[in-house]
Design a protein around this nucleic acid. Sequence first.
RNA 1: GCGGAGGUUGCCAAGCCUGGUCAAAGGCGUAGGACUUAGGAUCCUAUUCAGUAGUGAUUCGCGAGUUCAAAUCUCGCCCUCCGCACCA
Length: 966
Amino acid sequence: MSEFAKIEKKWQKKWSKDHVFEANPDSKKKFFLTVPYPYVNGSLHIGHGRTYTVGDLLARYKRMRGFNVLFPMASHMTGTPVQGMVDRIKAGDKMAIEQYKRDLRLYFKTEEEVDAQLMKFTDAWKTAAFFAKVIHQDFDALGYSIDWRRHFTTGDPIYNEFITWQYHKFMDKGYLKQGNYPLLYCPKDQNPVGEDDLLEGTSAKVKEFTAIKWPFEDGFLVAATLRPETIFGVTNMWIHPDKEYVWAEVDGEKWIVSKPACEKLRLQAKDVKTLESFSGSRIIGKTFRAIHDSHEIPILPAEFVDVNNATGVVYSVPGHAPFDYIALLDLQEDPSGLDKYGISPEAVRGIDIISMIDIKGYSEYPAKDAVEKRGINSQNEDEKLEDATQEIYKAEFYEGVMKDNCAQFSGRPIRDVKEEVIEWMKSINRVDVFYEPDQRPVVCKCGADVQVGVFAGQWFLDYESPGWKDKAWEALNEMDIVPELFRNLFESTFNWLTQRPCARKRGVGTKLPFDEEWIIESLSDSTIYMAFYTIAHHLTKNKIRPKQLIMNFFDYVFLGKGTAKKVVEESGISEELLKIMRDEFKYWYPNDQRHTAPSHISNHLSFAIFHHVAIFPKKDWIQCISLNEHMNMEGGKMSKSKGNTIPLVEIPDKYGADVFRTYVVSAAEPASIMDWRERDVPAVRNRLRQFSDIMRKYSKYTPEVPSKKAKRSEITKWALSRVNSIVRDCTEYLESFRIRDYAITAMHEMIRIVNHYQNRTEVPKEELESTMAYICDKWVRMLAPMIPHLCEEYWSKMGHEDYVSLAEWPRLDKALIDLAAERAHVVVESTISDIREILKLKRDKQHKTVHIYVAPSWMFEAMNSIRDADLPMIVGDIMKHLMSKDEFRKHGKEVKNIVDRIAKENGLWDHSTTAKDEISMLRDSSNYISKELGLKVEVHKAEDAKYDPQSKARFSLPGRVSLYLE
RNA sequence: GCGGAGGUUGCCAAGCCUGGUCAAAGGCGUAGGACUUAGGAUCCUAUUCAGUAGUGAUUCGCGAGUUCAAAUCUCGCCCUCCGCACCA
């Protein structure tokens, strides 16, 4: 058990007992912070901890800044994952059971208990409830300042009512639509499949081909392609001679496609009737007609045709497709097998390759170039051909221009014309769409090959509905995104967001009110729930039943529509309670800051913005989104299956909550991926120990409120100044979400300062103690957001009866910031390091004394004068400036030295204000210097140095003393 | 492919927006010292190279450019990582 664990448990108990983080509306300024609720189908790991910890740090900081902070949490359980796992457990799936057991062992000691708990996972709710409970405990154990009264799960009936209301709103706006939509689909299960359902090809997506309908006999030969613009270069059709093709009636037309393709068309919401089945050879030798000019084109045999890919019908563009080029070449060279199809060798040899795309750096036939470049000799060299195809596709798409044999598209760039060609063919009924998975194989867990299914009647949200995007853009443009660099991810998401299914036919969730076969899917039911937090605790406490949550209830509470009286009649909820809820919503909303990981930008966060603008008035839109990246484990990606994760539940005991919190805010900037490195953890722990040691030592003293006039050592002035500078900096860091800078400054920099200060023996004991007590008071407040447990402990040791969690953020005592003292300190330190450097080089000689020569007064005046003049760093100007003044001109030659030095150093350096200050400060510090170096220290004025055997005094400059060692 | 992020001194990681004060914060590691002799605790110092005086030289993926001045700005190139839709 970690050494901090006892302290942590103690304060967690107290916080909970005193309801410290339960926030209710009051007269203070409010701050409503949310972090997305966790998905409760398993235990969380250390990576989740980063985001929640940052969220908690922000909440705690804001609280100390005097805000009434609401930081709530709920549990997400809708969708397929929980249900899926339960189903698999019930079905006896060994992998699923083992995975759950692994999670359960974290919470139970014996295998019996684990098994007993597993037995209880008979439905999604019981499973979710268990993990919701343990995650709550885990969060508490990390010191998160959450108001748990407002907890709910997305499977709760009252939450379903809320989502029902949300979708009624979308329906009213006309944003909710129904239509055809392609999805990966398992023909055996007769269900759409998601990543979790797949055995192989988990990253597969739906790829859309253009199916071109080439006129043939009384119907069409249907060829699927990604390059519809190449229809102008067609020279022939490729059909596999030995495979089965069909004549089918498809939506009332006669199509020829391969047999497997015909099956696929059925899944793709086509009305398909197979008329006749035949071998490919039957149509080889016949001709079909071109799209653009109806000339007759031959059908030739090709064994490279894969009837399982797309339609199994391939139109050939040898000028621009390497596969076609090499296949045609093969036939022309050896036409011997063709006579059985009634094709004469002359006919094949007579086929002219058509060049239809002009592209720089290639000949008339780019396909030929690419094939020859790779030395490809046969159509069997798949890999090389694939590579050549990629090259040509890319080059032609970006740089190609249609030649003048391309009808109305002549002279146009390919990239512009592609869509237009499709549109044109659509207008003359020559195209359709054909879907395929973008990779093979894709296999369902049931073992079946996955196909693309087009769902008729799929419900989706149409993000391109008139006006919706405009409003969302408005919200985004006015929203703070921190770090700002993530904004463009939102922008690109907004740009490509079109239609998106929002319901499926399985899983846990809210039934779509208009079509109860459908269940609202889990990304679509978690977008405006921040509003639900504002009233959730009232609903549970007052045992409001789902039935009472009628649409008018939400209209009233969230939108202020209608009257409480009317809602009372319909819902039976008391007017008083209604008003309380309405007021509470009004108080907390909008959500001031939503904090999460950037991976949610492309879906959840964008939806949250869209859904807010759809439902709420502008004043209730999300104000700010902040983000931190995910976490890696020892340089590698973390994943449960790899087993390289650390469960959240183990953190407090293994490391300590405060250690973890410190690590997680200080190891990387929010915008970069953090690496968890076990061997760095002890360093963090040691810092906290040092902090504890110092606190333990000085918390018993009374901090004297130091007035500016108080007489004190130079080094005390320095320490007081530094501490206040740090308070100022840390405040700024936290305000601008630079939490790492905050952590490093408030922890490392402070420790360094305190150590240095304690080492300065010249400070009288009482002065040191009261100064240290003053510093500790600032310090304990400053670190409270990051390491709240330790800070509570020492806060109470300081004699406070209240909580540091609720204390005031350290006040900045501006008057104690003493730049002169800080600069002087820099001079001393740089003097020491200069002396060290000399000692290092003169190691052979024993030195006893160091003579320090401080520059003459007029030089300080000269430096100050340059500073005050705020001149650009141009030698001539500075020279002119100084020489214009008599008091400096008389030192002409030396003035030049100063200016040369300034030029060399590219600016002014730190120095004391006057020679007198510098001397007195160095004399004050001479004990310290002496102790550091083991030398006797003598400080001289340069202009009348009593002792200067090597006449070093003349080299001195303000802040750059000259030295003589003997 | 589309979109995005990034390559910094042994490792991790700041700095880059707002050029100079940057041989470049901080941590880890390593070395020396202090405390001392129990500590994998703490403190100090050092850690590109050269140098018998506080200095100089060469560095921030590669190459070029702008500038009095570039890790920082511009252009080109190489490499790595991430998201891409129905999936939380």
